[in-house]
Design a protein around this nucleic acid. Structure first.
Lengths: 230, 230, 230, 230
DNA sequence: TATGAATGAGCCTTCATTCAT
DNA sequence: AATGAATGAAGGCTCATTCAT
């Protein structure tokens, strides 16, 4: 669809973390932005997040977005090729942040230290998911069909899987099949956060995190599941 | 919007089962359908499944559906109030089947019998998910916003949760918090099936089922995770 | 631009002349039209002729066309892919008619019989030009840029040139260069009609035809130019 | 619309020549331009010529023009009221040059001297047409509708007609109708140049000029058409 | 019961023009 | 004298829904 490409999120995998609102954000033309231009683009990205969150990808109208951003249609198309392009930019922000988070997953040990480290990480995941969840949801929606989003999503998923597999390998006896188990854990963590964020189930973040940590440990080390601090 | 309501096909699927989600359905005449009418409606439902699967809820056009069903726009509106109504009908089919399946979840025991029973059930879940997955995915999409779908989805989720909680209670020592753990297991099972079905990860159904059963047991009884038959 | 193709005008070169309003006319989908559909399409083609005539290709809005045709936007796009597609259909009508006319050019002889035959033919040309002139003008406009119209126009021009060359060859001594002379005559005839039709010069059709016939004969046979019946 | 009017560049082209088409020009401050300003204006006029040539009047975007001129939107509107104003300025250049050329048309005599003089003039016409042809083409396009361009075009045409009529009168026996014949010759000369310039027919300039001269002479004096020097 | 033509609100996108710096 | 960000009125096109047959 667009003929000019934005900086790839993969680049952001590097340790040097770019400023959140600029990372992966692109313009319709790749031109350099002055101060004012940056503000406008940030407003649009932010408005996009809100509107996609509220209405989902398909139902979101450019008109909604520019209204929230208090700017005009013309301006929108100065910064983005179209709705998809804006979404792409947001998705890349998410992807970048997720990649980075995945790589901070601590080694999982069977003791209370391991559980604590896991809980810290799960809290960070939860915070990130809360921040970007709407985009992720819309992502799933946009994914259907043909667009290139799928790959982005799969990429992030794969990265999570890869890191979890490593941890599973480090932790578990050699007779278990780490890839599937890793995926199962990733799936659980993602989806529970989704249920909670979307309000389909009502649980405190602490309870959720504790349980997820416990299930994860139990899965790897056979520690009987006990919900702590609930 | 005309007021005529659509015959409720979902109801027929499980005569004994109370129609829990019927409230929101704004459809469907009680008029009896002749043989031909039944065939046409079946064609439309089937076409709807295909098209929603391929394009998602929003991107699906009535035009696509009637083309696949080899019928006309006029006919479509003879059987359904609108696109949402058709989707509702399909969603109700899914919900009914899911409710029924949830209620066949066997007691979970720590022994190999328990694992085997779990695997049988997970296979049934997987089959059902494969059959209806596209609708479920589109469901998530339609859910965003305001429609009544959310309730339907939440209802099914709740039912699964309820049943799992019962089993977790039966199985686990009294000091664990069953509701959150149950939800985590449901989330894991659903999402892994989704990943696999949507082709985002490539795993054989057997491997998936075995792992899910193992993780479930491990979570409840501390059985160290072992992937069997992989 | 469009993925489905309309019947080629070249086909219409065959002696069997198709009904004027159906020739070259195409639909967005190639589907067969019922009586009503044919009427609607005719209305749109007619409205297109009027609007393109009045405003030119670029300035013509689909909205104008459907207003003149007393129909709706939706209907327009039922019959044509877009504005260009409608124009194409009209242009093909013109091209077909022009091809056919070109092939009826009589042999040019130096006597009064030759002049009379030429006048008859020029009158037919003039009538055709009056009928289709607006489209031809818009054609020139649409031609600029990249579209395939150019070829169509060039094709018609070439056909006229070819036929005139034949006649010039028949008529003129062997020492003259027929192709350029033929083109010059074609250019003159076309452009004079254009000037007159567009109201840039005010001359009666008779005077115009007589003069064109006289110049043509004079060019070929050296008959001194005399304007008759003026 | 601001009322400041643009400096009239056309006037400068022929100080002695009365500005006949100035009436419709709604432009341009009498403010004097410094060296830099003159350069900028020249860049814009030049860019305008290129872009109108390539895309035609309607399809030409101000954005294209300023890009080619390597300047900004703001600057464009410093020099011209709007797109039409720039076009007007260019058209006036053309009109002025054409007027001047028309008035150098030599008397047409039946001998070889007359033919030679005609060929010299036709070559000048051709050169001018090549230089300004794109504008003339766009002119025709802009003409459609309501703008004042038509008058400008008609004015030039009328001037050519007037001059040709004089020559025809000088040359021809009193029994011919000079106005129509003159127009026919003008039409021919213009249109042949157009065909050649637009690449619709492929002829060397020499062949074209020779033929046009021959047809012109033949029309006036009955000299049989012979293409010379081909 | 079935058809397909017709409708028009809605949304996306472009581009001439203005304005603050 | 120059810049480039911002604006918003057009205008193209789609698609859910209705209607006449």
């Amino acid at each position: 669809m667009h003929s000019r490409s934005r900086p790839k999120p993969a680049a952001a995998l590097s340790p040097a973390f770019p400023e959140p609102t600029d990372a992966g954000s692109g313009s319709a033309s790749g031109r350099e932005l002055r101060e004012r231009g940056k503000r406008t683009m940030a407003k649009l990205l932010d408005a996009g997040t809100q509107v996609f969150a509220k209405r989902g990808y398909h139902a979101a109208r450019v008109d909604d977005i520019v209204k929230v951003a208090k700017t005009s249609h013309g301006t929108f198309y100065l910064y983005f090729l179209n709705k998809e392009d804006l979404f792409q930019a947001l998705a890349e922000q998410v992807a970048t942040a997720m990649y980075d988070l995945a790589n901070t997953l601590p080694p999982v040990t069977p003791d209370e230290d391991g559980a604590a480290a896991l809980r810290v990480w799960l809290n960070k995941f939860s915070d990130l998911y809360r921040q970007y969840g709407p985009i992720i949801r819309a992502w799933t929606e946009a994914e259907i069909g043909d667009s290139g989003f799928g790959r982005l999503g799969t990429g992030v998923l794969t990265e999570f899987g890869r890191v979890f597999v490593e941890r599973v390998r480090q932790a578990a006896p050699p007779n278990i099949e780490p890839t599937v188990a890793a995926m199962a854990l990733v799936a659980m963590i993602e989806r529970v956060n989704y249920y909670v964020l979307s309000g389909q189930v009502h649980v405190e973040q602490d309870a959720m995190v504790n349980t997820l940590a416990a299930v994860t440990q139990a899965s790897l080390f056979g520690t009987p599941l006990r919900s702590q601090n609930v």
